[in-house]
């Protein structure tokens, strides 16, 4: 893969000779795959809802399928972002909604109930993957109540804060006096200029 990146290097810049280990875990790769899958499915649901409802024998539910498509796309984008864990949990929730919608179509008079059963099976399988990926990509931030190391002695001022404050006050006082003198001198000069006919 890094051979491509070497091609786009500016001539003379360092090129990769040997790649090091990646920070990406298998769960990250799975999250990425699920994210793209979600976007793909969402696009189909959004732009070809009739094909979906006909396949499932659930004609008349096109609006719901479109809404599910928007949800899939949003979840997919989220799963591809740095907040992938939140995206994956929205996918787990979405799997529940998908299953509920499919179950509502699983009636004895639906000639396509075999397709619905197959779809339910697929949703179940995907839900397992979503749940697994969501578990494995949990943010590794420490919990709020975790014990943290504090740094109460790191002032950065080797001579102490009071010494710095005193020095700053002296400089400010000096600057004020200097400015005042400068302003008075300036006023005289301006006055002189005004007196020039």
């Amino acid at each position: 893969m890094f051979h491509f990146s070497n091609i786009v290097r500016t001539k003379g810049d360092p090129e990769i000779v040997k790649g090091g280990p990646s920070l990406k875990q298998p769960a990250d790769q799975l999250a990425r795959a699920l994210g793209w899958f979600s976007i793909g499915l969402g696009v189909v649901e959004l732009f070809a809802p009739r094909r979906v409802t006909e396949t499932l024998g659930m004609e008349g539910r096109e609006t719901m399928v479109r809404a599910f498509g928007v949800r899939e796309i949003m979840s997919g984008i989220m799963s591809l972002s740095v907040d992938k864990n939140a995206g994956l949990w929205t996918r787990v929730g979405g799997d529940g909604l998908d299953a509920a919608a499919l179950l509502s179509g699983l009636t004895s008079d639906n000639p396509k109930k075999g397709n619905i059963a197959l779809a339910l099976l697929m949703v179940g399988g995907i839900a397992v993957l979503d749940y697994r990926a969501a578990q494995d990509t949990k943010p590794r931030r420490p919990p709020r109540d975790a014990r943290r190391k504090l740094y109460p002695n790191r002032s950065g001022f080797p001579k102490g804060i009071e010494s710095v404050r005193t020095a700053a006050r002296q400089i400010a006082a000096h600057a004020k006096t200097h400015l005042k003198t400068h302003a008075e001198t300036n006023e005289v000069k301006q006055g002189d200029e005004r007196r020039v006919p």
């Binding site: 890094f2 003379g12 360092p14 090129e15 990769i16 000779v17 790649g19 090091g20 990646s22 990250d28």
Partner: peptide, 24 residues
């Protein structure tokens, strides 16, 4: 030499790369 190299979102690796040279 060793260097920390950007490979994509959340993917920085310690790679072996060629040494820099005087270009100018």
């Amino acid at each position: 030499m060793k260097a920390l190299v950007w490979h994509g979102k959340e993917d920085i690796r310690c790679d072996t790369v060629t040494d820099p040279e005087i270009q100018d």
